[in-house]
Structures are given as C-alpha cells and as structure tokens.
C-alpha cells in the first residue's frame, strides 16, 4: 500500500512553547488511525497543520505525492482532505437537508465565489448527493428538522456527513464522540465507520475512549508532549508502558518518571 499522507520532521512552536515536534509518519490509503493523547499533547495541533489551519514551523506534509506544507485550508480541502470538528460546525438556522445541500453545493462546485453565482444551489447533483449522504449517515429521518434543535448525536453525524459530501480521500475527525453519552458512542461510531469504509476514505480520528480506539482503529498514534510516543496496532500501542502511564492511566506513574515529567 502506498502512503496517502506522509509527514516528515513536523514541528510547531508558539514562541517558546513547542506544540508539536519531530513528527514523522506515513499513513497508507484506507487505513483507520486513532489518535490518542492527553489534553495539550499536540493532537489538534497535528490535525490543524494537516488541514492548513496552522502553518508548521518546520517539516513537510505530503498528500498523494503533493507537497501541501503551508497551503491554505481552502486549497487543502479542494485537494481531498476534509475534517469534522470537536464542536459540530453546522448551519443552525437551516434544516438537516439544507445543511447537507449547502455543503454539497460548495464542496462539489467550482473554487471561485463568482462561479457559484451562476449555479443553482438545489441542482439535481446537489440534492442527489445530499440524499445519499443523509442515507449513509442514517439521519434521513431528521431531514426537515432545523439543525439548532437536533440532538447531540445527530449534530455530530450531520457535521461528518457535511465533511464527506465532497468525496474526500482523507478525513480527519476531531473527537467524533465528544459530548455523546457512553451508551450512544459505539452505535454512533458504527454508523460513521461503516459509512466512511463504504467510500474508501482514509480516516484519522482523535479519541479519548480507549475502548472505541481498540474497536475501530487499525492503528494508534499516541501523542505526548508534542510528539508521537507510540505508533502501532491498537493492542500493541495501548500496551506500551508510556502510553499506559501518560495517556490511558492504566498504570500508575512511577516516582522517578513523575519527577522528570
């Protein structure tokens, strides 16, 4: 398998704060990668650099044999990398269907704003894709409900559906299950992962629940202090001593390490 995403020596500093350092890794196409790490470990900084929200201080990012380092979010989105958000970013005055239609019209339309002044929002293509996405993420029942009044789980699914209508090859999910009750987490992730697999999308997802990570990830990246401290299959990465100490909390902190940290 060839790598869809390759990062080399990635570093991001804010003044004297090092938010990310020395990150080098390859993600093969269609792999599902779970990203774990405590708050402030650099997970979101990593995602923000890949999606162009932050410009890396050092290092390079390659996506499908293209150097995308330092490109704008808009350019990167157009190249095929999409993202969802920890707090669902939806159009709250619109209905579910209108949300997906708007997303489809933008993501599948031309780049320039002016070109969008000559295309109807509700074209056959837009509506067809929106229906397919609503079906795929099982939110068709809510199609005429205003987004502001949706239950949290549906908001999350809508957010991800809107990221998918442009048919990205790589999707970054920032905490897809945050704010969701424990009972609902697994069924939500089932829907999401089945949908993404059916579209052959490579997935990077940030997650705090280790059970979710073990169940859905092919591979785990464990972040600590701005860098990757473990990278491998879930069973292997989650068994790592440092991961158990600093992230999953299944191993108590030894005195010496605590003092050094």
């Amino acid at each position: 398998m060839t790598a869809i995403l390759s990062v080399r020596k990635l570093e991001k500093t804010f003044g004297s704060v090092v938010a990310a350092r020395d990150i080098s890794l390859d993600i093969p196409a269609q792999q599902t990668v779970g990203i774990i790490g405590a708050n402030g470990a650099g997970k979101t900084t990593f995602i923000n650099m890949i999606t162009g929200y932050l410009r890396p201080s050092l290092g390079t990012i390659w996506f499908e044999d293209r150097d995308i380092t330092g490109r704008s979010s808009r350019q990167i989105t157009r190249l095929g990398i999409s993202r969802s958000f920890q707090v669902a970013q939806i159009f709250s005055s619109l209905t579910v269907m209108e949300n997906i239609c708007a997303a489809a019209a933008i993501a599948r339309g031309p780049r320039g704003a002016l070109a969008h002044a000559w295309r109807p929002l509700l074209s056959a293509d837009t509506v067809g894709e929106a229906r397919a996405a609503a079906e795929l993420f099982q939110i068709g029942a809510y199609r005429d409900i205003r987004a502001a009044t949706l239950p949290q789980g549906v908001r999350k699914l809508l957010d991800i559906a809107m990221a998918v209508v442009g048919w990205p090859r790589l999707l970054l999910l920032d905490e897809p299950t945050s704010g969701i009750s424990i009972e609902e987490k697994f069924s939500l992730m089932d829907v999401v992962m089945t949908a993404l697999k059916s579209r052959n999308i490579t997935v990077l997802f940030v997650e705090h629940d280790m059970e979710i990570v073990s169940r859905f990830a092919d591979r785990v990246l464990a972040f600590y202090d701005g860098t990757v401290i473990a990278d491998g299959a879930p069973a292997q990465a989650l068994a790592d001593t440092r991961v158990r100490t600093f992230i999953s909390g299944t191993r108590t902190v030894p005195e010496a390490v605590a003092g050094a940290g």
């Binding site: 989105t77 704003a113 442009g166």
Partner: peptide
Amino acid sequence: IRIEFLGLS
C-alpha cells in the same frame, strides 16, 4: 468556519 473548510472563501 464550515464554509471555509468546505473550500470556499
């Protein structure tokens, strides 16, 4: 934010 991340200015 959502519009920008869908690829439009």
